[in-house]
């Protein structure tokens, strides 16, 4: 069974994904007058980040 290694290439892509999520979070938090949309998009972004972390943990467990 192949073991996933968290090398430089993977770290680059994962940190790019997290950087994009941070950017999206900033744009979506500041980009609307509707408080519901603001908190909903924050929650969705947290869910996505949680899913990404979960995948990372699953992968590095091998």
């Amino acid at each position: 069974m192949t073991v996933f290694r968290l090398g430089g290439f993977e770290l680059l892509w994962v940190s790019l994904a997290f950087a994009w999520l941070t950017y999206a979070g900033y744009r979506l938090w500041t980009g609307t007058a509707s408080p519901t949309a603001r908190f909903l998009s924050l929650g969705l972004i947290l869910l996505i980040a949680m899913g990404l972390l979960q995948d990372l943990l699953d992968f590095s467990r091998g």
Binding site: L28, A37, I48, M50
Partner: peptide, 26 residues
Amino acid sequence: AAYLPARADLLAFLVGLLGLGQLLEW
């Protein structure tokens, strides 16, 4: 639609799609 005035609609669409997928998965 909430993000149309700020021109962040594509971003909101992507986040909504990915987020709903995560909601379903969790």
